[in-house]
Design a protein around this nucleic acid. Structure first.
Length: 136
DNA sequence: GCCAACGTTGGC
DNA sequence: GCCAACGTTGGC
């Protein structure tokens, strides 16, 4: 079991849309680091869903329902997609500012490598984020 | 194979 | 809307 975080601009694809659809194809990744992370996902892995640009907060938990396969939106088989399903929304979204303020996250990719759109999350950090989401 | 130029992402 | 960071591209 691994933990991940994916980013999406809510204008492009939001958590609400994922809940409404029940499942989505996580495609369109065109960055090798992010691609490698997608490939490392296993079925059932949990994925934190982060809204970038508008919101800048982690809003929900999803899970991997299908492991990496060739991205249907790409011309090349080099790129992959996965399928994800919503699990549950966070009670309180965890904003990027709160993560930046917390020393436990100083090496977290969301802080260190702002442009990466798919990243692994240590279990300790995943648990910490869930704990933060319980508090207002 | 290096590195400058360019494009994109995403926080502010 | 601006700009910093950084990945990618392409010339040499």
């Amino acid at each position: 079991m691994n933990y991940w975080l994916v980013k999406s601009e809510p204008e492009a694809f939001s958590w609400d849309q994922l809940v409404k659809d029940g499942e989505t194809v996580w495609s369109g990744v065109r960055n090798y680091t992010a691609r490698n992370n997608l490939k490392a996902m296993e079925k059932g892995d949990l994925v934190l869903f982060y809204h970038s640009v508008t919101g800048k907060e982690i809003v929900g938990i999803a899970k991997v329902s299908r492991v990496a396969y060739p991205d249907p939106t790409a011309d090349s088989v080099a790129w992959v997609a996965t399928d994800i399903q919503p699990v549950k929304p966070l009670k309180h979204p965890v904003p990027l500012t709160a993560i930046k303020e917390d020393a436990r996250f100083k090496d977290f990719s969301l802080v260190r490598q702002g442009r990466l759109s798919v990243m692994p999350v240590d279990k300790e950090l995943y648990d910490a984020i869930l704990a933060m989401s319980q508090k207002a």
